[in-house]
Amino acid sequence: MSGESATRITPGNAYRPEDVAAQVAEGVEVSEDVAEYALRLGDDALILAQRLGWWISRAPELEEDVALANIALDLIGHARSFLTYAGAAWGKSEDDLAYWRGENEFRSSYLVEQPNGDFGKTIARQLVFSAFQHELYSRLVDSADATLAAIAAKALKEVDYHRDHATQWTLRLGDGTEESKRRMAAGLVSVWPYVDQLFQDDDLVGRLEGVAVRPSELRAPFDAYLAGVFAEAGLELPDIPPAMTDKSRHKHSEHLGYLLAEMQVLAREHPGATW
């Protein structure tokens, strides 16, 4: 029946990880392909949240401790929803997936795995990723998969704020002092080789026509958005070729191993424990 939603929740309403979990508990069917796609979305959000979490208590201003924590919290929420949904295909929980997968089983992109660097680099990574995610979720709300659409609908409102936050800081740093301009530009140079991977189509996306968003379709609006920000900030578009990455996201940067070692250490010391 058309219009009948597997989630019973209209996109746009608050859709929490617990709602997805309740859905999964009722035995919602998730195909391997959809699960694999949800892993990509969830892992990007999770790894970036893990990175941003480091800033809390170290930010340049108290207001930024609050803001970066807020963004990290939103991303953890997205990750929990996507991972819970993905886990339904394999009988695994969000925590099984977050804490008990090895490095090669993650589907995060090189960009979110990049270290925080200074505030300039963190903002550069935020700008690029939130602009990408904004285009992605804006289209995912129309996915034929009602759960993905509902998660995206909730996340989009939050990512709208993330993108604005990164944009405002890019303007301040780009058009602030000589030093801030230099650092912001250096941050962009540092993350730019990993931008291209976000926009690569692969077979999975091809098989999920109507369910997944084709990353390549997001590049033009992404470029247009960034061009506007850079022009206002007085920054140049980095002229740097993309690094060799992996469109199917099986390969990772060296950084991911360290990040996971820290993130998973306690959970893995206590197999089978609940927290």
Binding site: E61, E64, F119, G176, E179, S180
Partner: peptide
């Protein structure tokens, strides 16, 4: 470490 960021925000 945040000094340059605060200075940039003020200058902007």
């Amino acid at each position: 470490n945040g000094a340059w960021v605060r200075e940039a925000a003020a200058a902007y």
